[in-house]
């Protein structure tokens, strides 16, 4: 990757309706999850990161490019290339007659020559784990999970440095969802993609993300690492958030047995380890 040390400052955006004075830095190479009740402003925040929604005040820096209230087109275009955005149910945006053409759509818009775009299409197909012979198929002939992968491939083909995803697993069966979430995690690790995930599912958060950003009423109310945020149970309740299922179970066990486990357990394996450690099992 080109040496972009992307520290993004989003700050103060004032819009009484959607976002209010948001200050946020996301480090390059991190995996953050944005959570919050419906209508907390999560999707608006995502849109500002991509310049789809312009701030009424304040600015957003993505690497060297800056989004402000008024913008030159080039900066916006640079940012959109840099920030790959996977919307909710992204298969709804597929339109071309073949998978290949759909994947090439993004790169071609950003001025990549056709030959090169087709090469990229092949690479991203492998990256998302789809066989190459699907390239000449119509996207509408594919299964739900495959369509979603094609849509994600179409974003990866723009070779973004930042990947923003809004509920990428929504509506898929458990197997399909796991595969997509693992795919995203491995992209994050192997390609050093800065990843921002919007989700309602706290188990996704603890299984895949490193950082959690909590939003409420258009503001960021907490931004930190998982353990410190989830250990603040009163606040979690106040924000109407759930706990990860293993942690919820841990609390019930602690209450029932009167014993306290040494640490917060986010996964069943952690919980099993802790139970063994204190001798409950």
């Amino acid at each position: 990757m080109e040496g972009v040390s992307a520290d993004y400052v989003i700050g103060p955006i004032r819009n009484s309706l959607v976002l209010q004075s948001i200050d946020l830095q996301i480090e390059s190479g991190s995996y953050s999850a944005i959570v919050g009740h419906t209508g907390a402003g999560k999707s608006s925040l995502l849109k500002t990161i991509n310049g789809l929604l312009l701030p009424t005040a304040g600015k957003i820096e993505v690497g060297q490019d800056i989004i402000k209230q008024k913008n030159n087109k080039q900066a916006l275009k640079n940012i959109r290339k840099k920030v790959g955005m996977v919307f909710q149910f992204p298969e709804a945006q597929l339109f071309a007659e073949t998978v290949e053409k759909d994947i090439c759509f993004g790169p071609l818009n950003f001025g990549v020559p056709l030959k090169q775009a087709q090469q990229i299409a092949k690479e991203v197909m492998q990256l998302v784990g789809l066989p190459l012979h699907l390239l000449n198929k119509s996207p509408h002939s594919l299964s739900g999970g495959q369509k979603r992968r094609v849509a994600i491939a179409g974003i990866l083909a723009m070779e973004p440095e930042i990947l923003v995803l809004d509920e990428p697993g929504a509506g898929l069966d458990p197997k399909g969802k796991n595969e997509i979430m693992r795919l995203i995690k491995s992209l994050h690790q192997e390609r050093n993609l800065t990843t921002i995930l919007v989700t309602h599912d706290m188990d996704d958060v603890v299984h895949y993300a490193d950082k959690i950003i909590v939003m409420e009423n258009g503001r960021i109310v907490r931004n930190g690492d998982l353990r410190s945020v989830f250990s603040d149970r009163l606040a979690i309740k106040k924000w109407h958030l759930d706990l990860p299922e293993a942690y919820q179970f841990q609390l019930e066990i602690e209450e029932r047995t009167g014993m306290e486990l040494p640490q917060i357990c986010f996964t069943v394996d952690e919980l099993a380890d802790a139970l063994m450690e204190v001798g409950l099992a």
């Binding site: 179970f249 069943v268 919980l271 099993a272 380890d273 139970l275 063994m276 099992a281």
Partner: peptide, 12 residues
């Protein structure tokens, strides 16, 4: 899930 995880760790 927890029962299986515990069984794997040799719990009784």
């Amino acid at each position: 899930k927890l029962r299986r995880a515990l069984a794997k760790r040799g719990a009784n």
